Computed example of a mutant assay.
Amino acid sequence: MPIVRVRFRSAAPARPAPEKSRVCSPLLHDLLWAHALPADGIDHITVRPFTAGRTATEAAVFVRAESDARALGIVRALLDRVRPHCEAHGLTPDVPTD
């Protein structure tokens, strides 16, 4: 089962308040699942906060797909659907390229 990792950047400072991290991960998890379609074949989504130069969150999306390339295409389509909602919460997805 391919796993596609996506980072979501935030405009917040590099050291987020603990409350921000606790809120961001469940919110992003819910947004991703709310916009996933049954045909996407997404099996599992894990979201965790981390800091890499500035505040960021990483999602690992486990996809039932026949290839890594197909899984990447599915996650890109999911990101197209969820992007406006993420941006409304100050999160910008870095679309994976490989």
Rank of each mutant, 00 (worst) to 15 (best):
F8R: 08
L27S: 07
R9C: 01
P18Y: 08
P49N: 11
H29I: 00
P49C: 05
R15K: 11
F50Q: 03
D40L: 06
P49W: 10
D43E: 15
R48L: 06
R15D: 07
L27D: 03
P13Y: 05
A14K: 13
R7C: 00
F8Q: 01
P18R: 13
V23W: 07
I42W: 10
L27T: 07
T51F: 01
S21E: 14
R15C: 02
V23S: 05
S21A: 15
S10L: 06
H29P: 00
D43C: 09
S25K: 14
I45T: 04
P26G: 03
T46N: 12
H29S: 09
A39W: 05
A36T: 13
L37D: 11
A12F: 04
S10A: 12
F50Y: 08
V47P: 00
K20P: 00
D40F: 03
K20L: 13
H35N: 12
V6D: 03
R48W: 06
T46M: 08
R15T: 08
H35E: 12
L28A: 04
V47W: 03
L32N: 02
A34S: 15
R7G: 00
D40T: 03
L32Q: 04
T51A: 14
C24N: 10
D43I: 08
E19K: 12
S25D: 11
G41M: 08
L37W: 09
A17G: 13
L28K: 07
D30Y: 11
D43G: 07
V6E: 07
P49R: 14
R9F: 08
R48E: 09
T46G: 10
A39D: 14
A17L: 14
G41W: 10
F8D: 00
P26I: 01
R22D: 01
P13Q: 13
I45W: 11
H29G: 02
L37S: 05
A14D: 05
L37V: 00
V47R: 04
P16A: 15
V23M: 08
A34G: 10
T46W: 08
D40N: 04
A12V: 06
I45A: 07
R9I: 00
R15L: 12
E19P: 00
H29M: 07
F50D: 03
D40V: 03
R7W: 03
L37P: 00
P49M: 02
D40I: 05
A17F: 11
F50H: 12
L37Y: 07
R9M: 09
A39C: 05
H35F: 15
I42A: 07
H35W: 13
A17T: 05
R7K: 12
H29C: 01
K20Y: 14
D30W: 09
H35L: 09
L28H: 04
P18I: 01
P26A: 06
A12D: 06
R7V: 02
P13H: 12
S25G: 09
V47G: 01
L27R: 13
H35K: 12
R7T: 04
K20W: 14
H35T: 03
L37T: 01
L32Y: 10
K20Q: 11
W33H: 11
L32T: 04
R7M: 05
V23D: 05
S25A: 15
V47S: 06
V6P: 02
W33M: 08
G41R: 10
D43Y: 04
V6N: 07
P26Y: 06
T46E: 15
A39L: 11
T51C: 02
H44C: 07
F50W: 13
A11L: 02
P13S: 10
